[in-house]
Every structure is written in C-alpha cells, then in structure tokens.
Amino acid sequence: MNTTPLIEARQLRGRYARTRIFDGLNIAIQGGGIHGLIGPNGAGKTTLLRAFSGQLPHDGHLAVWGQDPFDNPEVMGRIALAGIDAPLPAGWEAMKLFRVAQSRYPTWDQGRALALLREFSLPSYKKYSSLSRGQKSALGIIFALSAGCELTLMDEPYLGLDVEKRDVFYRELRNERERRPEATFILSTHELHESEKLLDTVSILHRGGVRLGGPLDEVLEGYSTFLGPGGAVRRLADAHAPHVMQVEELAGSARLVLSLPLRAVEEVPAGVRGSELTLEELARAVEGEQR
C-alpha cells in the first residue's frame, strides 16, 4: 500500500463545457483491482476519467504511472476508456473497431473480442450509430475488456443494458480481474447496489473533492446506521453528537447515521436496531451532509 499510487492528482482543476467541475481535487488510486468512482450527477466523474485517459487538458498536478497523461502517447497506449460519453466513430461497425483497436493496442485479444460479441448477442456488421443504447454500451465494454490494458476506465458502462447483459458485464469484469490481478479497472457508477459486490476500492466525490475513499470493506466498516422509535434514536444521537452524519425522522420513528463503526457504538437503547451501511446508504449520507 505504501508504493507510489497508480494515479495521483493534487490540486487538480478541470472544466466540462466551460463549467468548472472540480477546483483543487486530490486523489490517489493504488493499482490493482476494481475501483469505483462514486458521486452525484455533475460531480465530475466523466471529466476525471477523461483527464486520467489523457484526453483532457488540466491545471494542477496529475500523474499516471508518474507521468502527465495529457496527449502522452506512451501513457495513452496503456489505457482504454469506454463509456457513453466516450463514443466510438458513428460509421464504424464492430469489426472495423476491432481492426483499429488491434493496431493500436499490442495487448488486444481478438479471440476475446469475438467471444464477447457472442456473449452480448451483438451484430458484427451494424454501424455504431444504428446500434441501440444498450448495444452501444455493450460494444464499449467489449472494446475495454479486449484491449487488455493495464488501466481500463469505464464510465457508467452498463447504461441501457438489460438485466441479463448487465450480469454478463459484471461476470466478465470479475473474470478479467481474476485473469489479470495486476490490472486496474476504474468504474464510474450509480449502480451502487450491484457494484457493492464487485468493487475492491472506492472514492466518493462530493462538492468538487474526494470526500472519502479506500478499500470498500474498510470504508463501510467506519459507519453505522440505527433505526428505531424517535426518542431512543435521539438519545443515541445526543450521546454521539460529534459523529452524527444524518438524522431522518418520520412520525415518531427515526433513522440515524453515525461515522462510527457499529462495534464502537455502546449502550444502544432497546428497540433500536443497528447495522452497517450499504454503499448506497453511505453515498446518500455523504450527499446529504450539511458540513
């Protein structure tokens, strides 16, 4: 863990369509495994992924493998970016994309690409522009997983995929991680329920910065939530006032989120049930924070 991070940004400033998205963002992502980039719409996830991939000029310090990725062919040749905001050329069909990718990436796996094409039941002759939204997403996923890059960036890659194809995606991503444990996959996502079972590490973006991050299980362990009658929950909240993240009340009942591990919360009143937070609940609590 103490090695140089794969990606490191300090005081990063970036804009999207002339709007400033983040102003002085700091992030460090260690290599290996699947990393989730989580945050509300407009938090800058897409902009950040494009900056990592070298496709976006930026102010401030950004290094991937210790080098500035912007317009840097040496870095860009080791990164694949896919997502609905990273569209492929409209006139290309799958086979044309595969040919181009093969010449761009020495690690390209044509056999894998063809197998995935079948897994996603995707036509090989249709132009990108005439594919459905889900099919476009699928083609992006196939491209990203077949490129065999050391760093794979996926921007909400599941958009428009049906349930079955989403399962294919999650399964294939898991396979890829198992096959290439040293490779790094960064996924921007809103599908927190599904990705909770997938992610190794996370960064939660909030108000132009990284609010919290680290190994997912460690991050989640640091929080607890309690549900019960309003009076009892309020007493519990008062007893742990410095750690209260969120209190919601509804006609005599209340829910409390504490930035404390469940086991560290003693003297839970009778009738109050405590549990760990899900990733979705944590993202919501961060989003609702007043501080």
């Binding site: 009658p229 309003g230 009892a232 509804l250 006609a251 005599g252 009942s253 009738g271």
Partner: peptide, 24 residues
C-alpha cells in the same frame, strides 16, 4: 413493529396522524 415501538415510547401518541403509505 417500528410504528408500534414509537407508540409505546410515546413519540407517536394517541390521536396523532400516523405516517402515510407513501411517506413510509
């Protein structure tokens, strides 16, 4: 059970409106 607990505790008292289906 949660609504009952609130009634037993007294934070939701007799004559008060209970949460609606939608609120719940």
């Amino acid at each position: 059970q949660l609504i009952e607990d609130s009634i037993v505790e007294g934070t939701l008292s007799e004559g008060q409106r209970a949460p609606s289906t939608n609120e719940l």
